Simulated assay, not measured.
Amino acid sequence: MARVLVAEDDEPVRVFVRRALEIDGHTVVEAMDGAEALDVLERGKGAFDLLLTDIRMPLMDGIALALAAAPQFPQLIILLMTGYADQRERAHGLDALVHDVMTKPFSLADIRAKVAEALAAGPKRPA
């Protein structure tokens, strides 16, 4: 199964996502914001298959995180999530870096299916 880094500042959502992905056997590491997630990625030398990040977070948002992580870790699959239409628009130009943008709220089945789809598709950037 995959190793997934979840960056989400809303603890109930972060816990929900972690539990959903653990059902499928994924190893999940949590980060409370983009800055912490980037630190986890760098300390782990990018040893993750998927980065699942909220767009709107304090310190470093998910778009800044994706822009920082993508060049350093080209094999990392990036999946964004947001509950805000304007944030989804901000992510529109990142098609070459991110697999997709998931709209909140989502169900257990939705998050599991979207992660499975992203992992099956593989990274968007050449290593």
Score class of each variant (00 low, 15 high):
A121I: 13
A68E: 10
I111N: 02
A85N: 08
G93I: 09
F16W: 12
K124E: 01
A91I: 12
L119A: 04
V6M: 05
T27Q: 08
T82R: 10
G93R: 05
V101P: 01
A116N: 10
I78P: 00
A69G: 05
L94S: 08
H99P: 01
R56I: 06
A37K: 01
E36V: 15
D39E: 14
A109H: 11
A120L: 12
A96E: 11
A113V: 07
P12L: 12
P74D: 07
G34Y: 01
A35S: 12
L41T: 06
L59N: 12
R14H: 09
P126F: 09
D110W: 00
T27I: 01
A121K: 10
G25P: 06
R56A: 11
E89R: 13
F73E: 05
I78V: 11
A113F: 03
L97S: 04
G83K: 06
I111D: 02
D24K: 00
S107R: 08
L76H: 00
A70H: 12
D10N: 15
E11V: 15
A64G: 15
A64Y: 08
S107F: 00
D95L: 08
Q72F: 05
E89G: 04
A121T: 13
I77L: 02
R90T: 10
V6P: 02
D24T: 00
G93V: 10
G44L: 09
I55V: 15
D110M: 04
F48E: 09
L108V: 10
T53C: 06
P105I: 04
R90Y: 09
G93D: 15
Q75D: 12
L79P: 01
V4T: 00
G83S: 09
R18D: 04
L65G: 11
A20Y: 01
V13K: 03
R43D: 03
D110I: 03
I111R: 00
A7N: 06
L79H: 03
I78S: 00
M57C: 10
R43F: 03
A91N: 08
L59H: 12
A31C: 10
R14A: 15
G34N: 07
I55Y: 08
I77A: 02
Y84I: 13
L94H: 09
